[in-house]
Simulated assay, not measured.
Amino acid sequence: MPIDHHSAVQVAAAQAGAMARACGLPGGLPDRAAVLASELASNIDKHARNGALYLQPAAVGRGMDIFGVDRGPGIRDLDQSFTDGYTTTNTLGAGLGAMRRIASHFTIRSGAGYGTLAHAWIADPRLPQEQPAAVGALSLPAHGRAECGDSHALVRHGETWTGLVLDGQGDGPEAAGAVQRAVRTFRPLADHGLPEIMTALDRALRHTSGAAAALVRTHADRAEYCVVGDIRVLALSPRGVEPEPAGRPGVVGHGMPPPRTGTVPWQADSVVLVHTGGVDHRWIRDASAVHLRLPPPLLVASLIHSHRRRRDDATALAFGASQGATCRVTPSAP
């Protein structure tokens, strides 16, 4: 949702409330989602430019994600901006204290030169919730399309996360149907070996248009991956972007080659990033030290907002090796 006019603030609130209800959030949580969206959109409208909100069912746990991204002047004093009653007509920050209390978890970064990035997760309190690890994911359909031919899924088993990123062949309902079928196939198999999962996806997509697919699994000392098709897997750290592992040409569901696995660096300050062709790979040329240190939810939002190809569906998924080292997560008050 682009925030390009003050009327977009109320539209954002209404859309957030509607999505919260569609996600099954009970009681007053849809109203809380509306407040969060309204506050984020209002700050963008008053103080920033080229801003937008992104709303989706939660990538982690049960609930809803709200991302706010802009290219404004940034918040001068982020800590002071969380103080109740703090506001100014010259800087961003109004309502941040309320947002931190309303959201189950709230993450924000802000600075001159790159604007403000915020992520709020609203969890369903009726269900057991894991603390969100340092992971983030966002999928967005091409401009003007209602259905997305990309998708992602995350499953945790013990201390290990396994993630799937999909880029359906073609576009529209056919591609969307293929990737949704792949996600349904993946979830019950997420603790199996990556080649076994990829082979199961290939069988499931044989009577569809097919897809490019990437599987990534985190371990204590490494991240394992398996890629078929044009999906990028990168390792980021404050030292820069590691050389990209090579995927295998092919289409899952149509004569897929035998799947192979590889590994990427996995240190305390590492982030493994996976993205489809809808994110322009040339973002690497402009990657700043700030972006290489972003926590995963804000990294994926920044890439989708600033570097997506508007005519293509786009997905980004990121894993951080250490929540403490890479992700500032603020729990809501009881």
Rank of each mutant, 00 (worst) to 15 (best):
S302N: 14
H307I: 06
Q131D: 08
V216M: 07
Q267S: 13
D79L: 08
M1T: 14
A37N: 06
M19E: 08
G63Q: 09
R311S: 13
L292C: 10
H47W: 07
G193Y: 03
W266Y: 06
L140H: 13
G72P: 05
A52N: 07
A289I: 01
R309E: 10
R184F: 04
P243G: 09
G74C: 11
I197R: 10
T91P: 01
A212V: 02
L201I: 06
N50I: 00
P265H: 07
V227L: 02
P2C: 00
D313Y: 03
P73K: 07
G277L: 02
P295C: 11
R187E: 14
T87W: 15
G24E: 08
Q56Y: 06
D4E: 11
D313I: 02
P2R: 15
R126T: 11
V183S: 08
T88D: 15
A18H: 09
T208Y: 10
A48E: 15
L166V: 10
M256V: 00
R109I: 02
S237T: 13
A301P: 00
G115L: 07
Y225M: 07
E147H: 12
A268M: 06
N50W: 06
V9H: 06
T162Y: 07
A52I: 01
G277T: 11
H6N: 04
V241L: 14
I197C: 02
A223C: 15
L189K: 15
E196M: 10
A301W: 04
G93I: 06
V271C: 10
R232G: 00
G115H: 05
L236Q: 03
D150N: 13
A333I: 11
L29K: 09
S7F: 12
A268L: 09
T263M: 01
C23T: 04
D167K: 01
A112I: 08
L201C: 05
G97S: 08
K46H: 14
L138Q: 02
N43R: 11
L215N: 09
L92T: 10
R76H: 10
T199S: 15
A112D: 13
T83Q: 15
G172H: 03
T276H: 04
S332K: 08
G193K: 11
L78G: 03
L273M: 03
P265V: 01
Q323L: 13
P245L: 08
E242K: 06
Q180K: 14
L36S: 03
M99Y: 01
F67Y: 15
G74Y: 10
A137M: 13
G158K: 08
A213Q: 05
G168Q: 10
G210I: 07
P195W: 08
M64S: 06
E130I: 00
G27S: 13
R282V: 11
H192R: 15
M64F: 07
L303H: 06
A153Q: 12
E130Y: 00
V69Q: 05
T185P: 02
A14M: 08
L96W: 06
T160C: 12
Y225W: 14
V251R: 13
G24M: 10
G320W: 03
R328V: 11
R232A: 14
V329S: 14
L294G: 00
G250L: 06
G177H: 11
P125D: 06
A20C: 10
L53Q: 07
L140G: 00
A182E: 05
A8G: 00
H119L: 02
G193L: 13
D221P: 03
R126I: 00
G168C: 03
Q80A: 15
G177F: 05
V228W: 01
A213E: 01
L215F: 09
T88H: 13
S110C: 08
R248S: 13
A41L: 05
